[in-house]
């Protein structure tokens, strides 16, 4: 078992087989730097619980294909990314820090899927981005490809 500590001082025990999906921790273990608790100063306990949930489910992922559990895993992934933006970004940042490639990809893809058909206004509101383009600049971008701003699929809602 490997012990992880979140930045709000909570400790979690994770099976080594699960935790080595993180390239960062795998390297620490290989270098003999994981003898006691591994502090994770960038990750809070709420996010770490999510990450550990993912790691535990994805142990022996290679075997899933053989045992026919692929669909089960797919369903888990779909449920897993069903979270708010803030939480999703926390998991992306944690996955980036811990270097868990598959988790990064899963969460980035989920974010992209949510954004894909959104209008510019909806994206700004969903991600709390302040528009810093001038009206002229904005008009210029629209004039370059007006068709990209039109179409029945474009969704102006923010959920």
């Amino acid at each position: 078992m490997v012990k992880l500590k979140s930045n709000d001082d909570k400790e979690f025990e994770v099976e080594e087989a699960a935790v080595i999906q993180s390239e960062m921790i795998k390297n620490m273990i290989e270098d003999g730097c994981a003898t006691s608790v591994i502090p994770l100063p960038n990750i809070d306990s709420k996010t770490l619980i999510k990450v550990i949930e993912y790691l535990n489910k994805h142990i022996n992922m290679g075997k899933a294909a053989e045992t026919g559990e692929e669909d089960d895993l797919k369903e888990f992934d779909e449920q897993f990314v069903n979270m708010g933006w803030e939480e999703l970004f926390d998991v992306i940042m944690a996955a980036n820090y811990l270097n868990i490639h598959e988790l990064m990809e899963l969460c980035c893809q989920s974010a992209a899927d949510r954004l894909k058909n959104k209008s510019v206004r909806a994206v700004r509101e969903m991600l709390k981005i302040t528009n810093d383009l001038t009206e002229e600049e904005e008009q210029e971008i629209i004039n370059d490809a007006p068709w990209a701003f039109e179409g029945p699929e474009i969704d102006d809602t923010v959920n």
Partner: peptide
């Protein structure tokens, strides 16, 4: 680089539109 990781998977039409999101 995380914004990049998200946007890089999008189709061209979405990206041409999202140039308008911010600088």
């Amino acid at each position: 680089d995380l914004v990049r990781g998200i946007l890089v998977t999008l189709p061209v039409k979405s990206l041409l539109r999202f140039k308008c999101v911010c600088r």
